[in-house]
Design a protein around this nucleic acid. Sequence first.
DNA 1: AGAGGATGGACAAGTGACTTGTCTATACCG
DNA 2: CGGTATAGACAAGTCACTTGTCCATCCTCT
Lengths: 155, 155
Amino acid sequence: MIGRMAQSSGAELALLLLGGFHSMVDEVNVELAKRGHDGVRPVHEFALRAVDAGADTASELGRRLSVTKQAAAQTIAVLEGFGYVDREPDPSDARRKRLRVTPRGHELMTVGGALFDDVRSRWAARIGDDQLKTLEGHLARLTGRRSFTAEDLQD
Amino acid sequence: MIGRMAQSSGAELALLLLGGFHSMVDEVNVELAKRGHDGVRPVHEFALRAVDAGADTASELGRRLSVTKQAAAQTIAVLEGFGYVDREPDPSDARRKRLRVTPRGHELMTVGGALFDDVRSRWAARIGDDQLKTLEGHLARLTGRRSFTAEDLQD
DNA sequence: AGAGGATGGACAAGTGACTTGTCTATACCG
DNA sequence: CGGTATAGACAAGTCACTTGTCCATCCTCT
């Protein structure tokens, strides 16, 4: 149906990429809810990973996620409400509130990561692990990410 | 020290897919704005393609885009405001308002499609056309290619 | 030291793309 | 016919953002 409709293989490719993302995320969300992390959304998990990777202030998180610091602050407020992060004043800079991932936050990261990995390995089983790795390598290159050093959320 | 980042290749794959989508869409949007289609968003263009492909009522559009008919109706209102579609009563069913893509709407589809194709061919130039085709094939298979199939149940 | 600018964060309001819920008008089916 | 499904309108709420404004604090430069 897409093919009949799109008349543009470029537009179709875009849809395929978005569809792939949704496909993974929806599945993970369902499982996460079953495991006591109800209400958490993909953006929260990715933000949490960024915090854990060193984005320990709202402004810095905003920069890494390419959103405004206000948007980041709102995400943090949600994360704090769920108990995934906490905030404490920075002794060396009174303007800052330093963010830390709580144990529950680390648990979400672990469980969420495992669920994402699970989807990924089912994909690998379907098209072959080497093929999936090639696909990832191409995407990394095309989107300007370095392939598996995972620097994407930093900077 | 990149070090400790995603810890989940599955989560990274999801990010890669989303990044790929955004990468294409952002580029297309910038060019579209320069060509007199300011304010138009990717969802609008995809919706327009669905209308053109035969989703000629709000309810049907909702089904194809996997959103509620109310959401589809809102998108249509925007599209109508921009002059990309118009609506007329269906003589054979007084409940329906039939949607038609206007000439300006067709122009958007043409220009937008060309811009998406342009991004796609730059990608093909970077990784090879055969590689890109393989990537598309895999994604189509993995996502079940059902973005716009009409069997999404809702009200 | 002290002015001026940059930065971090809070608060307020607005937006866009959705959702649920409710309602009416019309169509189709037994 | 009458019951039910469907198309669409309207209202209100949600969520992840955005702009804009403000203040406290830090940093730099002369």
